[in-house]
Amino acid sequence: MKQQHEVEQFLYRQSELLDTKQWQKWIDLFAADGIYWMPPDASYKTWDGQPAIFAEDKNLMKVRMLRVLHPDAWSQRPLWETNHVVSNVVIRKVAKNGDIEVASRFHMMELRRDDVRHFAGSYFHRLKKTKNGYAIKLQRVDMANAQAAYDYVLQVWV
C-alpha cells in the first residue's frame, strides 16, 4: 500500500509540474540516462533506432524547454494551457533493489488560444529507487489518438 501510494504521488507530481509549466523540475524527475518516449503507435517495442514522436534524453528535453521559453517561439505565444488527469495506476513489477515498473492512464485537455484539444492514452514508467524517491529511467507514452493524423502538432511533453 505504501509503495502504491508513493508511486501515485510521484505520477501526480509529474503531471502537476507539466500543467504548471515547471519544466526544469519536470526534467529533473528523470535519471541522468532517462528517456521520454512517445512511439508512433502501440506496436513499437523500442525507441532506439525507430521513428518516434518523442525520443528524448535530458539534453533534447533541455532543447525543447529552452525553445518553448524563447521569446520567438511563435507557436507558443501565448503558452498553451494543459490539464492532466492521471489514473488507473497499477504496479507491474518490483525488482529486489526497489526499481519499479508502473502503468497508468492519462487524459489531457489542452487549450491553445480558442481551441481545445483532447489527448488520452497510457503511461508506462520504469522508475529507479533513489535516496530522494524515484527517478525516471524510461517513460513511454502511448496515445489513444495515435491512428489519427495530428491536427496541428504537439510542443511540450504529454
Binding site: 512517445m38 533506432g49 525507430q50 521513428p51 518516434a52 514522436i53 518523442f54 525520443a55 533534447l60 532543447v63 525543447r64 525553445r67 517561439a73 511563435w74 507557436s75 495530428y150 496541428y152 502538432v153 504537439l154 510542443q155
Partner: peptide, 20 residues
C-alpha cells in the same frame, strides 16, 4: 532518422512554427 524525428514528427521542434 534523428532529423526525421526532431524536425518532421508531430512533436516537431521546427515545423510547429511554420504551421503557426
Amino acid at each position: 532518422l534523428a532529423y526525421y524525428n526532431l524536425v518532421n514528427s508531430p512533436a516537431t521542434l521546427i515545423n510547429a512554427d511554420d504551421l503557426e
